[in-house]
Design a protein around this nucleic acid. Structure first.
Lengths: 195, 195
DNA sequence: GTCTATACAATGATAGAC
DNA sequence: GTCTATCATTGTATAGAC
């Protein structure tokens, strides 16, 4: 039942999805839904909670892996991107809360989850600076730039140019940002860095 | 009448906004709306078209100003950000088409407008590389990173930490990206560059 | 072009039996 | 816990007079 609601909310949005849609897709009757979730909003909130937990878990698991700061940052960003890819429906629902119209869906605090993500990215950057791997810079702005990279890479829209992408677009965007932050001793060529 | 619809679509989303809402907010009666726009979708499309034209115009006007490539890029990004700030409702509607659920709103091709923006950013970066101001790099990925910066900076969410932001968040994120791309002769300190 | 009045389908939600 | 049947409301859209 939740699976049906997830698919529908993701593809049509909360407001445009009717309770009847969910019922038909799930093959249950109205009282079942209302008994378990109270109302339409209850179904949505259950889903939003699930989304938040799933993302938190996936991202938590990706923390602290990788030798260098750059690799840890890359790994973290990849983890976020992977969640977006693997559970696109759930993420779409999360997005509709975050960037969608304020009243399009019931209120749910997903912003704090993202704020936490930014804070962690910031920490990773700061550690890179302290270890000398990255040059001194505004860690918070770097974190936001990285988040922007993930955000943009998550949209399949830009990458339908036909063509082959020899590398993952996210990786390439991250390279752009991270190369610019490399410490003074790092190579500065335009291509991919090979340690 | 369009103003009323704009505000409502922006705050509640397309699906959640009823024709009655629009009528009440605009102080007109139903036949007026149906006479001029055919139906609810017609109102939305009129609004979407207006958004696209407005953004195109504002962004076009910002092209080719500024002495250095970095400044031209900054100016361009600022222009996009300015549109987002000054006509937040319209942009929110555009966003709901772009990143929102596929069927949440009537289809309207706004992606080509953004693709055009990316292409222009790419060109600016490429020119910077050719003039030697920027070091060789993957221009398209840089353009996407810049777009991500604008995207992130447009969300007032992250910047409610109380505190004063001594500089515009967008500017700071752009600095992070652009400093990393500076040619070999550029200064590499962490703070703001002062030419 | 705009009004009053309304048709008529779809909506979220519930009552009461089992 | 789940069913059938249904309610009250709200939804989009229109007819026909002015």
């Amino acid at each position: 039942m939740l699976r049906a609601a997830k698919r529908l909310f993701a593809s049509k949005g909360y407001a445009a999805t009717t309770v009847r849609d969910v019922l038909r897709e799930a093959g249950v009757t109205a009282p079942v839904l209302y008994y378990h979730f109270g109302n339409k909003e209850g179904v949505f909130l259950a889903l939003a909670r699930e989304a938040r937990e799933k993302i938190d878990a996936a991202v938590e698991a990706a923390l602290g892996r990788g030798a260098t700061a750059s690799e840890r940052i890359r790994g973290y960003c990849r983890a976020i991107a992977a969640v977006r890819r693997d559970d696109a429906d759930l993420v779409r629902i999360a997005d509709s809360i975050l960037s969608g119209p304020p009243e399009a869906a019931p209120r749910f605090d997903i912003r704090s989850a993202i704020a936490e993500t930014v804070r962690r990215l910031e920490t990773l950057v700061r550690q890179g600076i302290e270890s000398g791997e990255l040059r001194p810079c505004d860690a918070r702005s770097v974190a936001l730039a990285l988040l922007g990279a993930v955000e943009i890479a998550a949209r399949p829209v830009w990458f339908t140019r036909g063509k082959r992408s020899c590398r993952d677009p996210l990786d390439r965007i991250l390279s752009v940002i991270l190369q610019g932050l490399a410490g003074s001793s790092a190579p500065r060529g335009g291509g991919r860095r090979r340690p």
